[in-house]
Design a binder for these strands. Structure first.
Lengths: 255, 255
DNA sequence: CGGCCTTTTGAATGTCTTCAAAGTGCGTGG
DNA sequence: CCACGCACTTTGAAGACATTCAAAAGGCCG
């Protein structure tokens, strides 16, 4: 479980990840950026496997993922698990603008994580949206984008083959991480065991393993030790029917 | 396509469906209920197959489903289709509280439908929430519940067998319709072809057909001409791992 | 070096899909 | 009123896709 550090997935928090991400959706003022960076002052570290949010827990303390990966998931009584969403560096989680909301799923850390208290951000856009127009717009766009990712997930799992699914998943992670500068055009660090990926993709570990091998054999990706290299991103996108989601009328870039 | 009327799925709009549904989530004042019922004054009818919302369309005219069924879906280039959600009588759709949002999916009518303009409701809770506390709370709860249904859908499709999936689906529809008085304890009208259900459940029509037969053979359901009778609801819920979602701390009843 | 987690492999099995065709029910038009 | 057409459901058979079980190989840490 301690291979992550070696991957360049250092746990050193980068205070500007969220500013970088939100800038894709709205122009942020200097004060807004300062607010985002100030969140880094109150951080917590948690070990891999820590339950960050319990199912049913009241969503009153929104957090920002500063470093590491987490996921939202549900488990059936017999142990089958479905992962709904991965929470990446720069992502908000437990962040719900509705009052009195309750967590619909549990959230656990998949790697060691550093998280920050995001309630100043929540307060800014709920109590004083007028003076934070950029943050407000960007956070709303984020909510929309999250819904779009969930729908993508459903299409993958419901209607795509293992091969397409896996390709699509890698592309989506690459896209999301590149929004915070953590992925290049053609390579991503994905610090997940194949078991975890399988639980997200609705596949068995064994079959996911074989599917990855097939993608490798077809010269589409390299995948060693958590580093994925996309050898033919364009081809991969065709196979996966991958397309960048459009969330608002004016989003500056939804990709 | 004109079998629906025979099913008791008459297209006569019932102005109180949404009031009935929202009452499950908050106490509504007389004025709030009046507002809801006044929505029925501006209705439109659309034939089955009509595209009610185009993907990418600006979400500026929220609507209320008064009668009939619709769905949100996406199609892959080769024709495979995934249905994300069914829109039932009493449901809001195209209803997004974020400004400048855009439809992430298309919405089409599956039966003849009657819809009403819901913008007075949207205005009430965005411009003047303070005087509509019940509506506001209930609509927020609705948004949460919709997310919960989407997550259920993902679990079904990602981790459940065809048999479990189908059982779970029927129970969920029964639950949702019973909130608007359109389903009894042990029976529901589901005006969908098996092809449509299959597209929601991520199955082929043929396999769904066989799965339904298996549920019948096992004395769990009867299913003739769109009417589903649950012979052993309790047993069915066990098979499907069905449980009613909990959306807010104080929801009066999420089932 | 030894232990544990993760990845990989093989083989058998099961689930689900596909293709093709027959059966059924309902509305329309003759 | 019956016959026909069309959409939907049902059936059979073959094959593809994915899972399961079991075990071996690889990598990392103490």
């Amino acid at each position: 479980m301690e291979r992550w550090r070696a991957l360049g997935l250092d746990t050193s928090p980068h205070a500007d990840l969220i500013a970088q991400r939100l800038s894709h959706f709205a122009e942020l003022s200097g004060r807004e950026i300062a607010l985002l960076e100030s969140l880094a002052q109150h951080t917590d570290e948690s070990a891999a496997g820590t339950e960050l949010i319990r199912e049913g827990q009241s969503l009153d303390s929104p957090r920002l993922m500063m470093a590491g990966w987490a996921c939202r998931y549900r488990t059936l009584p017999d142990g089958r698990r479905q992962i709904f969403k991965f929470i990446l560096p720069g992502d908000l989680f437990g962040f719900c603008l509705r009052p009195k909301a309750v967590a619909l799923t549990a959230t656990i850390a998949l790697t060691p994580v550093v998280t920050a208290d995001a309630s100043p951000l929540a307060t800014a856009i709920t109590k004083d949206a007028a003076s934070h127009p950029g943050l407000t717009q960007a956070c709303y766009a984020t909510v929309g984008l999250n819904e779009a990712y969930l729908l993508n997930q459903l299409v993958r799992v419901g209607r795509q083959t293992a091969y397409e699914r896996t390709a699509h998943f890698i592309l989506e992670i690459r896209e999301r991480l590149s929004m915070v500068g953590l992925a290049g055009e053609a390579s991503v660090a994905i610090p997940l065991t194949q078991e975890i990926m399988a639980d997200a993709l609705g596949l068995s570990v064994v079959h996911l393993n074989r599917t990855l091998q097939q993608l490798r054999r077809n010269q589409l990706i390299e995948f060693k030790g958590g580093m994925v290299r996309l050898l033919q991103p364009q081809r991969l996108a065709e196979i996966a029917n991958f397309r960048a989601p459009h969330v608002t009328e004016t989003a500056r870039a939804a990709a």
